[in-house]
Protein backbone atom coordinates (compact mmCIF):
# COMPACT_ATOMS: atom_id res chain seq x y z
CA UNK A 1 0.00 0.00 0.00
CA UNK A 2 1.21 3.50 -0.79
CA UNK A 3 1.83 5.53 2.33
CA UNK A 4 -0.15 8.74 2.45
CA UNK A 5 2.41 11.40 3.40
CA UNK A 6 -0.18 14.12 3.75
CA UNK A 7 -1.89 12.62 6.79
CA UNK A 8 -0.81 14.54 9.93
CA UNK A 9 -3.11 12.67 12.35
CA UNK A 10 -4.33 9.08 12.36
CA UNK A 11 -6.65 7.41 14.84
CA UNK A 12 -6.09 4.11 16.63
CA UNK A 13 -8.13 1.41 14.90
CA UNK A 14 -8.07 3.15 11.52
CA UNK A 15 -6.36 1.33 8.75
CA UNK A 16 -3.61 3.88 8.02
CA UNK A 17 -2.68 3.86 11.71
CA UNK A 18 -1.76 0.16 11.44
CA UNK A 19 1.26 1.21 9.35
CA UNK A 20 4.32 1.32 11.62
CA UNK A 21 6.20 3.52 9.14
CA UNK A 22 3.54 6.18 9.66
CA UNK A 23 2.52 5.82 13.28
CA UNK A 24 5.51 4.06 14.85
CA UNK A 25 5.73 0.57 16.28
CA UNK A 26 3.78 1.10 19.47
CA UNK A 27 0.86 2.97 17.95
CA UNK A 28 0.63 0.60 14.99
CA UNK A 29 0.47 -2.40 17.28
CA UNK A 30 -2.20 -0.76 19.44
CA UNK A 31 -4.11 0.29 16.36
CA UNK A 32 -4.36 -3.30 15.19
CA UNK A 33 -5.37 -4.44 18.70
CA UNK A 34 -8.01 -1.72 18.85
CA UNK A 35 -9.95 -3.51 16.13
CA UNK A 36 -10.66 -6.48 18.40
CA UNK A 37 -9.91 -5.40 21.96
CA UNK A 38 -10.82 -2.63 24.37
CA UNK A 39 -7.91 -0.24 23.77
CA UNK A 40 -8.33 3.34 25.09
CA UNK A 41 -9.04 5.65 22.13
CA UNK A 42 -6.29 7.92 20.86
CA UNK A 43 -4.61 9.51 17.88
CA UNK A 44 -1.15 9.69 16.48
CA UNK A 45 1.00 12.53 15.13
CA UNK A 46 2.49 10.74 12.16
CA UNK A 47 6.12 10.42 11.24
CA UNK A 48 5.40 12.19 7.97
CA UNK A 49 3.93 15.19 9.75
CA UNK A 50 6.90 15.31 12.12
CA UNK A 51 9.48 14.69 9.44
CA UNK A 52 12.39 17.08 9.58
CA UNK A 53 11.58 18.52 12.98
CA UNK A 54 14.73 18.95 15.07
CA UNK A 55 15.74 20.82 18.23
CA UNK A 56 14.82 23.43 19.23
CA UNK A 57 11.45 21.76 18.88
CA UNK A 58 8.50 23.85 17.92
CA UNK A 59 5.38 22.31 16.39
CA UNK A 60 4.38 24.07 13.17
CA UNK A 61 1.15 26.07 13.27
CA UNK A 62 -0.82 23.82 10.91
CA UNK A 63 -0.02 20.72 12.94
CA UNK A 64 -0.87 22.55 16.16
CA UNK A 65 -4.34 23.26 14.82
CA UNK A 66 -4.76 19.61 13.81
CA UNK A 67 -3.69 18.44 17.29
CA UNK A 68 -6.06 20.82 19.04
CA UNK A 69 -8.82 19.67 16.72
CA UNK A 70 -8.16 15.99 17.37
CA UNK A 71 -7.89 16.59 21.11
CA UNK A 72 -11.28 18.32 21.02
CA UNK A 73 -12.73 15.23 19.35
CA UNK A 74 -11.08 12.87 21.87
CA UNK A 75 -11.90 15.10 24.83
CA UNK A 76 -15.61 14.98 24.16
CA UNK A 77 -15.46 11.85 26.24
CA UNK A 78 -12.32 12.33 28.30
CA UNK A 79 -10.25 15.37 29.13
CA UNK A 80 -7.04 13.74 30.39
CA UNK A 81 -4.64 12.09 27.97
CA UNK A 82 -1.30 10.29 28.08
CA UNK A 83 1.40 11.38 25.62
CA UNK A 84 3.93 8.73 24.51
CA UNK A 85 6.59 8.39 21.92
CA UNK A 86 6.00 5.85 19.18
CA UNK A 87 9.33 5.55 17.39
CA UNK A 88 9.21 4.11 13.95
CA UNK A 89 11.75 1.47 14.91
CA UNK A 90 10.41 1.15 18.40
CA UNK A 91 8.87 -1.99 19.88
CA UNK A 92 9.93 -4.13 16.96
CA UNK A 93 10.72 -7.70 17.73
CA UNK A 94 14.45 -6.97 17.93
CA UNK A 95 14.76 -3.53 19.46
CA UNK A 96 13.03 -2.21 22.50
CA UNK A 97 13.04 1.49 23.25
CA UNK A 98 11.10 0.99 26.47
CA UNK A 99 11.96 3.75 28.89
CA UNK A 100 14.27 5.63 26.57
CA UNK A 101 11.67 8.16 25.51
CA UNK A 102 9.63 10.20 27.91
CA UNK A 103 5.97 9.59 28.72
CA UNK A 104 3.61 12.27 30.02
CA UNK A 105 0.61 11.11 32.03
CA UNK A 106 -2.66 12.83 32.86
CA UNK A 107 -2.18 15.82 30.56
CA UNK A 108 -5.11 18.24 30.39
CA UNK A 109 -5.79 21.21 28.14
CA UNK A 110 -4.52 22.37 24.75
CA UNK A 111 -1.47 24.22 26.08
CA UNK A 112 -0.32 21.38 28.32
CA UNK A 113 -0.87 18.86 25.53
CA UNK A 114 1.22 20.80 22.99
CA UNK A 115 3.97 21.28 25.54
CA UNK A 116 3.96 17.56 26.40
CA UNK A 117 4.22 16.67 22.69
CA UNK A 118 7.20 19.00 22.28
CA UNK A 119 8.92 17.57 25.34
CA UNK A 120 8.25 14.08 24.03
CA UNK A 121 9.82 14.97 20.68
CA UNK A 122 12.84 16.44 22.47
CA UNK A 123 13.41 13.10 24.13
CA UNK A 124 14.09 11.58 20.69
CA UNK A 125 17.21 13.74 20.61
CA UNK A 126 18.40 13.12 24.17
CA UNK A 127 21.96 11.79 24.44
CA UNK A 128 20.55 8.56 25.85
CA UNK A 129 18.17 8.02 22.95
CA UNK A 130 20.85 8.88 20.38
CA UNK A 131 23.34 6.51 22.01
CA UNK A 132 20.72 3.77 22.10
CA UNK A 133 19.96 4.12 18.40
CA UNK A 134 23.66 4.25 17.59
CA UNK A 135 24.27 1.01 19.52
CA UNK A 136 21.45 -0.66 17.64
CA UNK A 137 22.81 0.49 14.33
CA UNK A 138 19.78 2.65 13.65
CA UNK A 139 21.69 5.28 11.76
CA UNK A 140 18.81 6.60 9.71
CA UNK A 141 17.45 10.05 10.29
CA UNK A 142 15.24 10.04 13.36
CA UNK A 143 11.74 8.97 12.41
CA UNK A 144 9.30 9.60 15.16
CA UNK A 145 5.61 9.55 15.87
CA UNK A 146 3.74 10.61 18.99
CA UNK A 147 0.72 8.83 20.48
CA UNK A 148 -1.96 10.80 22.34
CA UNK A 149 -4.29 8.43 24.12
CA UNK A 150 -7.10 8.62 26.63
CA UNK A 151 -5.68 8.55 30.15
CA UNK A 152 -7.18 5.57 31.93
CA UNK A 153 -7.67 6.28 35.63
CA UNK A 154 -6.73 2.76 36.57
CA UNK A 155 -8.29 1.22 39.65
CA UNK A 156 -5.92 -1.71 39.25
CA UNK A 157 -2.99 -2.15 36.88
CA UNK A 158 -2.03 -5.55 35.58
CA UNK A 159 0.94 -7.11 33.84
CA UNK A 160 0.25 -10.63 32.58
CA UNK A 161 2.46 -13.18 30.81
CA UNK A 162 0.81 -15.82 28.64
CA UNK A 163 3.75 -18.11 29.51
CA UNK A 164 5.73 -18.16 32.73
CA UNK A 165 8.77 -15.98 31.93
CA UNK A 166 10.78 -17.40 34.84
CA UNK A 167 10.25 -21.13 34.34
CA UNK A 168 9.42 -20.90 30.61
CA UNK A 169 6.38 -23.08 31.30
CA UNK A 170 4.19 -22.50 28.25
CA UNK A 171 1.02 -23.71 29.93
CA UNK A 172 1.19 -21.37 32.88
CA UNK A 173 -0.11 -17.78 32.79
CA UNK A 174 1.31 -15.37 35.35
CA UNK A 175 -0.82 -12.39 36.37
CA UNK A 176 0.58 -9.58 38.52
CA UNK A 177 -1.53 -6.65 39.72
CA UNK A 178 -1.53 -3.71 42.11
CA UNK A 179 -3.54 -0.57 42.90
CA UNK A 180 -3.51 2.52 40.72
CA UNK A 181 -1.65 3.37 37.51
CA UNK A 182 0.93 0.96 36.16
CA UNK A 183 4.02 3.04 36.96
CA UNK A 184 4.51 1.53 40.45
CA UNK A 185 4.01 -1.99 39.08
CA UNK A 186 6.26 -1.59 36.04
CA UNK A 187 8.77 0.52 37.97
CA UNK A 188 9.10 -2.15 40.65
CA UNK A 189 8.29 0.10 43.62
CA UNK A 190 5.50 -2.20 44.79
CA UNK A 191 5.26 -5.88 45.65
CA UNK A 192 2.28 -6.86 43.52
CA UNK A 193 -0.29 -9.61 43.90
CA UNK A 194 0.61 -12.62 41.75
CA UNK A 195 -1.50 -15.46 40.41
CA UNK A 196 -0.16 -18.53 38.60
CA UNK A 197 -2.94 -19.95 36.44
CA UNK A 198 -3.27 -22.95 34.10
CA UNK A 199 -4.68 -22.52 30.64
CA UNK A 200 -7.84 -24.28 31.76
CA UNK A 201 -8.34 -21.52 34.34
CA UNK A 202 -7.22 -23.51 37.38
CA UNK A 203 -5.33 -21.27 39.85
CA UNK A 204 -2.07 -23.04 40.77
CA UNK A 205 -0.97 -20.53 43.38
CA UNK A 206 -1.65 -17.01 44.50
CA UNK A 207 0.40 -14.62 46.55
CA UNK A 208 -1.18 -11.42 47.86
CA UNK A 209 1.56 -8.79 48.06
CA UNK A 210 1.95 -6.13 50.76
CA UNK A 211 1.18 -3.34 48.31
CA UNK A 212 2.50 -0.21 50.00
CA UNK A 213 2.70 2.26 47.13
CA UNK A 214 0.52 3.25 44.22
CA UNK A 215 0.62 5.79 41.41
CA UNK A 216 -2.45 8.00 41.19
CA UNK A 217 -3.51 10.81 38.91
CA UNK A 218 -3.62 14.25 40.48
CA UNK A 219 -4.99 17.54 39.21
CA UNK A 220 -1.75 18.24 37.32
CA UNK A 221 -0.09 14.90 36.52
CA UNK A 222 0.44 11.87 38.63
CA UNK A 223 2.36 10.90 41.74
CA UNK A 224 3.16 7.91 43.87
CA UNK A 225 1.53 7.79 47.32
CA UNK A 226 1.10 5.33 50.19
CA UNK A 227 -1.67 2.77 49.92
CA UNK A 228 -3.95 3.03 52.99
CA UNK A 229 -2.78 0.34 55.42
CA UNK A 230 -6.13 -1.49 55.48
CA UNK A 231 -5.94 -2.01 51.70
CA UNK A 232 -2.37 -3.19 51.38
CA UNK A 233 -3.09 -6.87 51.87
CA UNK A 234 -6.44 -6.96 50.12
CA UNK A 235 -6.40 -8.79 46.76
CA UNK A 236 -6.45 -6.21 43.96
CA UNK A 237 -8.37 -8.56 41.63
CA UNK A 238 -11.34 -10.82 42.24
CA UNK A 239 -11.19 -14.44 41.07
CA UNK A 240 -13.48 -13.52 38.20
CA UNK A 241 -11.22 -10.66 37.14
CA UNK A 242 -8.17 -12.95 37.20
CA UNK A 243 -10.06 -15.31 34.86
CA UNK A 244 -10.91 -12.42 32.53
CA UNK A 245 -7.25 -11.33 32.35
CA UNK A 246 -6.12 -14.93 31.72
CA UNK A 247 -8.61 -15.26 28.86
CA UNK A 248 -7.35 -12.02 27.35
CA UNK A 249 -3.71 -13.17 27.55
CA UNK A 250 -4.53 -16.54 25.97
CA UNK A 251 -6.52 -14.91 23.16
CA UNK A 252 -3.71 -12.47 22.43
CA UNK A 253 -1.13 -15.24 22.35
CA UNK A 254 -3.27 -17.17 19.88
CA UNK A 255 -3.83 -14.04 17.86
CA UNK A 256 -0.13 -13.12 17.79
CA UNK A 257 1.05 -16.67 17.36
CA UNK A 258 3.60 -16.52 20.18
CA UNK A 259 3.79 -15.92 23.95
CA UNK A 260 3.02 -12.32 24.92
CA UNK A 261 3.23 -10.03 27.88
CA UNK A 262 0.39 -7.60 28.22
CA UNK A 263 -0.29 -4.49 30.25
CA UNK A 264 -3.89 -3.80 31.07
CA UNK A 265 -6.00 -2.00 33.62
CA UNK A 266 -9.41 -2.09 35.25
CA UNK A 267 -11.17 1.24 35.37
CA UNK A 268 -14.78 1.50 36.44
CA UNK A 269 -15.15 -2.27 36.19
CA UNK A 270 -13.96 -2.40 32.56
CA UNK A 271 -10.77 -4.11 31.41
CA UNK A 272 -8.61 -2.01 29.06
CA UNK A 273 -5.71 -3.35 27.04
CA UNK A 274 -2.80 -0.91 27.17
CA UNK A 275 0.10 -2.83 25.65
CA UNK A 276 0.90 -6.23 24.14
CA UNK A 277 4.40 -7.41 23.28
CA UNK A 278 6.07 -10.70 22.52
CA UNK A 279 7.97 -12.11 25.48
CA UNK A 280 11.58 -11.53 24.42
CA UNK A 281 13.20 -13.22 27.42
CA UNK A 282 11.42 -16.57 27.14
CA UNK A 283 13.87 -19.44 26.73
CA UNK A 284 13.12 -22.99 25.80
CA UNK A 285 11.97 -25.31 28.49
CA UNK A 286 14.36 -25.76 31.38
CA UNK A 287 14.08 -26.67 35.02
CA UNK A 288 10.68 -25.85 36.40
CA UNK A 289 11.18 -23.82 39.54
CA UNK A 290 7.48 -23.49 40.18
CA UNK A 291 5.92 -20.60 41.99
CA UNK A 292 7.63 -19.24 45.06
CA UNK A 293 6.01 -20.62 48.23
CA UNK A 294 3.95 -18.05 50.15
CA UNK A 295 5.94 -16.58 53.01
CA UNK A 296 4.61 -16.85 56.52
CA UNK A 297 3.49 -13.33 57.11
CA UNK A 298 0.28 -11.83 58.40
CA UNK A 299 -2.37 -11.21 55.79
CA UNK A 300 -4.78 -9.36 58.06
CA UNK A 301 -4.81 -5.92 59.56
CA UNK A 302 -5.95 -7.03 63.03
Amino acid sequence: MQMDRSVPITWLGQHDCHDARLSGGKAAALSRLAERYSVPPGFCLTSSALHGIAPPISIPGRLRAAVVDAYATLAREVSAVAVRSSAVDEDGALTSFAGVHETFLNVRGDGALLMAIERCLESFFSPRALAYRHERGAFDAVRMAVLVQQQIVSDVSIVAFSANPVTAARDEIVVTASWGLGESLVGGTVTPDTWWVRRDGRVEAERIGDKRRMTVTTLDGCREVDVPRMMRKLPSLSAEQVREVVQLAVQLEQHQGRPVDIECAYSGGRLYLLQCRPITTLRSARDRAGPAPPEQESSTSF
Binding site: V156, T217, C222, P228, M231
Partner: peptide
Protein backbone atom coordinates in the same frame (compact mmCIF):
# COMPACT_ATOMS: atom_id res chain seq x y z
CA UNK B 1 -11.66 16.46 44.39
CA UNK B 2 -8.11 15.20 44.94
CA UNK B 3 -9.25 11.61 45.23
CA UNK B 4 -11.09 11.77 41.90
CA UNK B 5 -7.94 10.44 40.23
CA UNK B 6 -7.39 7.63 42.73
CA UNK B 7 -8.52 4.01 42.29
CA UNK B 8 -12.23 3.52 42.94
CA UNK B 9 -11.50 1.08 45.77
CA UNK B 10 -9.41 3.77 47.47
CA UNK B 11 -12.21 6.31 47.13
CA UNK B 12 -14.61 3.75 48.61
CA UNK B 13 -12.19 3.07 51.46
CA UNK B 14 -11.87 6.80 52.14
Amino acid sequence: AQLAGYPAQVREQF
